[in-house]
């Protein structure tokens, strides 16, 4: 497999803020690749640079083998992009929005009409093609934007937070579309998300990005496996006591967070009674105890010491800066 995307030491500063900090990685052809991280982590900035909307401060990248600095128009022709915020003309119909895009990419009328027809069928909007976009639901708009991004047959499709603000059911539906696209059309898909579940369900590989840096990059399975088996979360008023009591050979890792201790154990269900016995012997009180399979949320927590949700609460300021910079 060849690289669809090659990123080397890509960096972007906004005055004092380092939005993207010296990142390097490759994305393979046909992959669904996720950039996962909290708001303000630098996902959209990275995407904007790859789509040649924003010049990097330093570093380089090639998209479909084309250098983003030397031939931005070449890059633009070879990619499709769906922005985080809607970018449809609501006063036009679905068909007119598609047609406008086809004309902007200089696709001859016959080919254009045929592709528009196929794509509207693919996203199941052919019955609504003559309706104004302002009558569409959020999910329909997203589907239309994805279809529109594909008219010029891009080899890479960028999706910036594709399911942000959608209902869970619509989200599931959209995931199926995206997975089908990658499989049937062989398109490389790069998506940013701060939904762990989305990255887990959809992506072949995930890069976890935090404060502008890539802190892990692997398949969701490997990332979760690296935590070592199942997670046992123990809440107790005496967290150091819990951690001290459970220094057993079968405990792979122990992490203490705000109000809980998380230990990794293989086949955790067989150890629950043992854990309770040990803690009782050490006279450590237990508030609650639960077992879970690790999720990417746990991976993020383990890597940064924060949950993505906590980070979101903290990052209002970052987001504000980010929005100002990108002009949202």
């Amino acid at each position: 497999m060849t690289a669809a995307l090659h990123i080397q030491n890509l960096t972007r500063h906004f005055k004092d803020l380092v939005a993207v900090d010296n990142i390097s990685f490759d994305i393979l052809q046909g992959e669904i690749f996720g950039l996962l991280g909290p708001n303000g982590a630098g996902k959209t900035t990275t995407l904007s640079m790859l789509a040649t909307m924003l010049a990097p401060t330093s570093g380089s990248a090639t998209v479909n083998g084309i250098d983003i600095m030397k031939d931005p128009d070449g890059v633009r022709r070879s990619i499709g992009i769906v922005f985080q915020d809607q970018s449809l003309d609501e006063e036009l119909t679905a068909l007119e929005n598609m047609d406008f895009h086809g004309r902007l990419y200089r696709i001859p009328a016959a080919v254009r009409n045929q592709r528009i027809d196929e794509l509207l069928r693919l996203v199941e909007l052919q019955d609504r093609k003559n309706d104004l976009v302002k009558t569409f639901s959020g999910g329909m708009r997203r589907r239309l934007e994805i279809a529109r991004g594909l008219i010029h047959h891009p080899r890479i499709l960028f999706l910036d937070e594709p399911t942000l603000g959608l209902y869970p059911q619509t989200r599931n539906h959209l995931w199926n579309y995206i997975a089908t696209l990658a499989k049937d059309e062989g398109i490389t898909i790069i998506l940013t998300t701060h939904y762990m579940e989305e990255a887990d369900r959809l992506c072949n590989r995930v890069a976890i990005i935090d404060k502008g840096k890539i802190i892990a990059i692997d398949t969701p399975k490997n990332l979760k496996d690296a935590l070592g088996g199942d997670l046992v979360t123990i809440k107790s008023p005496d967290l150091p006591g819990v951690a001290a009591a459970l220094r057993e050979p079968w405990v792979i890792r122990t992490e203490t967070h705000n109000d809980e201790v998380i230990i990794s154990i293989r086949n955790a269900d067989q150890y629950v009674s043992t854990i309770v016995t040990i803690l009782n012997e050490h006279k450590v009180p237990i508030t609650s105890i639960s077992i879970s399979k690790p999720t990417l949320e746990d991976v993020f927590l383990s890597l940064t010491g924060r949950t993505i949700r906590e980070q979101d609460a903290d990052s209002t300021e970052n987001m504000r800066i980010h929005r100002k910079m990108t002009g949202h």
């Binding site: 909307m53 633009r76 922005f83 902007l104 529109r148 002009g327």
Partner: peptide
Amino acid sequence: WDKQFGFLKETLVAPV
């Protein structure tokens, strides 16, 4: 307005 409603981006990211 196109900028505010996002549509301008669609035009700006095209190879034109």
